[in-house]
Design a protein around this nucleic acid. Structure first.
Lengths: 300, 300
DNA sequence: GATTATCGATAGGATAAACCTATCATGCTC
DNA sequence: GAGCATGATAGGTTTATCCTATCGATAATC
């Protein structure tokens, strides 16, 4: 089997046209180089060089293969270069999963920031439910994901990005009096609209409003926050809205949005990744940037 | 130092995403493959794969390098293919030297024949004096050469291609009576025109006509057969013309060309090459073709 | 929740590849 | 013909690579 070592020796031999000098160039003894060249010729089944008393002549075969061999050696050296270069932070491809109740609000702010600060980064976004995010991160289909913590899989590492408070949204002509601030107990469960199953926000809303036995829930599940809030603005009910969505949804739907009384309920948004991924620097830098983006979204 | 073996193992690992299966694919034990991958990562200074309990995931680095590594492996396989393919007769480059008193007459016939019968052959022609031909063949600057035999260098091998008879050429209005056939003794040395020094034909002409002491020779030396024969046709003298040149030169100059009496003097044209060149098949095929081309030239 | 299966890493010893020094045979130069 | 230079060969050593057996940890299963 042909080896790179043999090619390197042949390269030196073709350069010097002299076994001794080629050996010196490759820091090896002349017999060693000679043996490797012979081995190479035997492997390929052709004579590469013509041994003469006054040095060496490449055979036509040798001359044919030389440029290809040199190209291979260059490509191999290129591997080292590329390996060395690509040790920077947030470079190359990053596959990022985001849950649907975060993605549409965070992405428009986050992506431009990423593009600006880490121009070498090529982000691939996927909007997935929590389970999808976690599974795909675990199986290496995603590098990391933005989900609501805590997650139940301790084979993944996570860190908190920001707290996302819940508020109550209703149509602005809602006849039911919404107190501000209101307590969870005041939420009329009959009128509470939720996302369809699978969305963590649905479970969180239920938890917040106390889905104790006996309290019924409107069993229609909206497919997205946008749909849900549209329903709310048309007076079909009320819902829990995460603060991160407020700014954006206000521009689209006329709604009345009131906070909960302290201690305000919230969800904790975090980043999850495989502990073995070895991209700690990347995760850290990404987390910092997301936190910054979220702060911008939440301040106004 | 990175090796091709490691790259092959990595290729298999990236394909199977499983150390055990990759090991089976490469006909090696799992620990051996594992060790090579680790060695590779250590060499490159980066993690290539992420070891998990359910198989393997490529790191971004690994994914970046994979296509390059596969390209390298393909190129190496290509070396074998090319080596195997190029074992045919008269393929690739052939650098052929020809002496000036043969080249202009043989080449127009020889080259088309070569092109037709050996389309994969790329002939590089060089017109050189005998010494140049021999030296360049010896030093590997030419693969072989067509010269007049015998040559004095026994480090080269040679074979006869064809016999090239000498004739006497004069202007067709030459007032000196040229007998036909004529003997060497009848040549008027005062009127004998020769090529400049270095051409073997000059020495052969002198040898034929007996350059015994006392017989002077016109000391003007023509630079080529064409020039020489032009001078002859203008009545400036007579000269020895090799039969191979007769057909072509007759169409350009009006001359009277008469043979020598038997035994007709001639030169032996042959092919020379390095015995170590290992292209015996090539030399043989080429010699056969040249003989054929010469026969065509000489028959008419 | 204990058991079993699977996966990659590790240990220890064997085999093969690659190397080095010293020497040889041959051709070239003076 | 002596001396020099070149690549090949010989014999012994070091280094790479490999294999079998086993381990520790995780994932799947009962």
């Amino acid at each position: 089997m042909l080896t790179l070592r043999q090619m390197r020796y042949f390269d030196a031999l073709a350069t010097t046209l002299h076994f001794g000098r080629a050996a010196k160039m490759t820091n090896v003894s002349q017999p060693a180089l000679s043996a490797q060249i012979m081995e190479m010729e035997s492997d390929l089944g052709i004579r590469l060089v013509e041994r003469g008393r006054s040095g060496v002549i490449l055979t036509p075969h040798g001359e044919t293969l030389l440029p290809e061999i040199r190209a291979i050696l260059l490509a191999v050296d290129g591997l080292y270069d590329r390996a060395r270069q690509s040790t920077g932070v947030l470079e190359g491809r990053l596959r990022l999963g985001i849950i649907p109740t975060v993605a549409p609000y965070l992405v428009p702010t986050l992506i431009p920031m990423l593009r600006q600060r880490y121009p070498k980064l090529n982000v691939e976004l996927r909007e997935l439910l929590t389970t999808g995010c976690v599974d795909d991160v675990k199986h290496g289909k995603l590098d990391c994901a933005i989900i609501a913590l805590p997650h139940n899989d301790d084979s993944l590492r996570s860190c908190t990005l920001f707290e996302d408070r819940f508020l109550i949204a209703s149509a602005d002509d809602e006849n039911t009096v919404l107190l501000s601030p209101m307590t969870e107990a005041q939420v009329d469960m009959d009128r509470l609209l939720l996302l369809e199953e699978g969305h963590c926000l649905r479970d969180q809303a239920l938890a917040v409003c106390g889905s104790t036995a006996g309290r019924r829930v409107a069993n229609y599940g909206a497919t997205s926050m946008a749909t849900l809030l549209q329903m709310v603005s048309h007076g079909m009910g009320i819902t829990l809205i995460p603060e991160i969505a407020v700014k954006d949804e206000r521009t689209r739907n006329r709604m009345r949005i009131v906070p909960f009384a302290d201690p305000q309920p919230s969800r904790r948004i975090g980043l999850v990744w495989r502990p073995r991924s070895g991209r700690n620097n990347d995760q850290e830098a990404l987390a910092a940037l997301i936190t910054e983006a979220a702060a911008e979204l939440l301040e106004g």
